[in-house]
Design a protein around this nucleic acid. Structure first.
Lengths: 186, 186
DNA sequence: CGTAATGTAAACAGATCTGTTACCTTTGTC
DNA sequence: GACAAAGGTAACAGATCTGTTTACATTACG
């Protein structure tokens, strides 16, 4: 990938995350990325295309960070499912945490079946799949159900941490997750 | 409250919910509400003021709907805590469900300590308080903790239903809630 | 009926948005 | 050094945004 393109996407992710999508103008992104508008429109034909590119790039980066952190934190599937919420806590504690970019995007582009929306849905699907894979390795009756519950806990902790500006939503969700997993394994 | 003002707020809630805040223009709201822009600016000095008024009004309406529905669905605190997720299911099933307006607002106005943000935080605080009140009536050791967990489940189900366009996130959250409550009561 | 309040319609100001273009500078390569 | 490709600057077009103002119509009520 070209360096300019990379810089544009990185800047877009940062500004979209901080200020939202509609509130972040093209000119602003180009300026912060030290790229002229002309060059920018050679890489992305429209703002929507840039948004989709930024979301997809962030998707890759984020899931890589998240899964790697989970796998570095614990060995067994059981411990890893719980470690998800430790990783979430670390995420929420970052100074530039403004909630989940994909949730925020869905909030701004909720009405139409756009590529933006599809990208967000796909991200959530992939995250759920990851949790499901871990749950499948447990000796439980209904791993899919358990995974759905844990995914909901994760989403809830993200939003709660975002609204309350308190990363401890992850700790609360972790306790709940433990109970749900243990209950299913008993 | 004046009829014009009422019409403006109702329209604002509808359009902001469907299309987001930045994407919904003043002119559009005035037109849909059949109110001239001049009159509109006599009621609200700025768009932000209208947003806050709409959020506060929706806060009142929504919590009233929600709590009443919960109380109509069940008698005991135990049953009511679980009924929360039945009410959520009904909410998610509405044809005009576009997620939680306050979560969406936080996503668009995440950077500053505005009145908009304060209104959203206050809404979430009041919803949590309600859950906490119900949990306090249970014979459990740590009702506050349980309430936090249930609140996270509720938030998670809202976002999941919004993204997946599937109200069944509420059913999943309900199962998880039962387990958490029963586990705390055993 | 007459008056005052209230509302509408529509233009306007000024800013900002996305996207394009004309002109000039830089840069890499032979 | 010559030349072509690429990028920067800055203006522009056209739309849309918030907010104001002017001129006219409607309504309420003594």
């Amino acid at each position: 990938m070209s360096k300019k393109r990379q810089e544009l996407i990185d800047t877009a992710i940062r500004l979209f995350g901080q200020h939202g999508f509609h509130a972040t103008g093209i000119d602003w992104i180009a300026e912060e990325a030290n790229v002229s508008k002309k060059t920018m429109y050679q890489h992305f034909r429209s703002k929507d295309e840039l948004i989709v590119a930024a979301l997809k790039h962030h998707d890759g980066l984020f899931r890589n960070f998240f899964m790697r952190a989970v796998e570095d934190s614990a060995e067994t599937p059981y411990e890893r499912l719980i470690a998800i919420f430790d990783v979430a806590h670390a995420w929420f504690s970052q100074h530039d945490f403004y909630g989940c970019m994909f949730i925020n995007a869905i909030g701004e582009y909720s009405n139409k079946n756009t590529a933006i929306q599809q990208t967000c849905i796909e991200f959530k699907r992939l995250m759920s799949s990851y949790i499901e894979e871990l749950a499948n390795l447990l000796a439980v009756e209904n791993p899919v159900e358990l995974a759905s519950e844990l995914a909901i806990l994760l989403e809830g902790s993200i939003v709660t941490a975002q609204v309350s500006r308190n990363p401890n939503a992850a700790s609360t969700a972790k306790k709940a997750a433990k109970i749900l997993i243990d209950n299913e394994m008993k």
